[in-house]
């Protein structure tokens, strides 16, 4: 297998010309999103350049401390992203969400790198990209799960009030909503597994094939990462929702959905 063609910077900039195509379509259809498209592209370029430089440095000077710091940064970002999408979370719910994301992401990553791949946990080349894929998907899953939970609770305010007045225990009352939200959160991951390999070659596999890995090896990694992602998303949404909903009522079984200002 040949190694990947190195992109030289001048040729690389050609890809940005494609954005002009997007801009003209936006203009033509009068969709007023040109600014956000340019802002998003600029941000992406900057963020990826930075992480490229940092990763290059870390790979050249591998030290477990760097790996730990990078992981901590990743988890923090993922957690705060979930908070910013779900502003009404109360303090205890936030702690539970943060703990669920950190625990499930780290646990599955350790299992993957140390047991399945058999690499050292101090090896940034494995730990960082795998954690990144797990964290990214977890962030989306938990956000979706928590958002769905709150939305359902809002939509079902009359049902909640009626059942509460009837003397139904809060766990009984909340469980159907928790179940429905978990389903919503993990379904996209399960659906991806169904379509994978037919319509699209997933990112990780594409990357490995481009850089010269045998497709058969790339497939093993892809299968492993998909199962790892599914597990992480499932564990983190389960933790967030199953323990989180208990923060929505007090000892007197009074329901308080929103954080007190």
């Amino acid at each position: 297998m040949s190694n990947i063609v190195q992109l030289d910077l001048w040729h690389f900039t050609l890809i940005y010309l494609l954005l002009l195509v997007v801009v003209s379509v936006l203009r033509f259809t009068r969709i007023n999103q040109t600014k956000s498209l340019l802002w998003a592209s600029a941000r992406m370029t900057l963020q990826l350049t930075l992480s490229g430089l940092i990763l290059t440095y870390i790979f050249q000077n591998p030290h477990p401390a760097f790996v730990a710091v990078y992981l901590a940064g990743m988890i923090t970002f993922a957690v705060f992203r979930v908070f910013s999408i779900n502003k009404q979370l109360n303090r205890r719910f936030r702690v539970i969400v943060a703990a669920s994301i950190a625990f499930s992401g780290l646990a599955v990553m350790v299992y993957f790198v140390a047991l399945v791949v058999g690499e050292s946990l101090g090896n940034p080349q494995y730990v960082i990209p795998i954690s990144g894929m797990l964290m990214g998907n977890t962030m989306t899953g938990v956000s979706l799960g928590v958002k769905t939970l709150y939305q359902t609770l809002d939509d079902q305010a009359d049902r909640i009030e009626t059942l509460q007045n009837m003397g139904v225990k809060p766990d009984r009352l909340f469980m159907p909503f928790v179940r429905r939200s978990m389903e919503t959160a993990i379904l996209p991951t399960i659906n991806t597994m169904v379509g994978i390999g037919i319509v699209s070659l997933p990112g990780m596999m594409t990357g490995q094939i481009l850089s010269g890995t045998l497709p058969t090896t790339a497939i093993l990694y892809q299968i492993a990462i998909m199962i790892a992602i599914c597990t992480t998303v499932c564990l983190s949404t389960f933790g967030s929702l199953y323990f989180g909903y208990r923060t929505l009522y007090n000892k007197r079984n009074q329901i308080e959905l929103n954080a007190q200002p």
Partner: peptide, 19 residues
Amino acid sequence: DTIALRRQVLLAGQKVYLF
């Protein structure tokens, strides 16, 4: 115990909910 209380002092609220 609030659960036991609510079953004895039962409130049919203003907002009607049926499955």
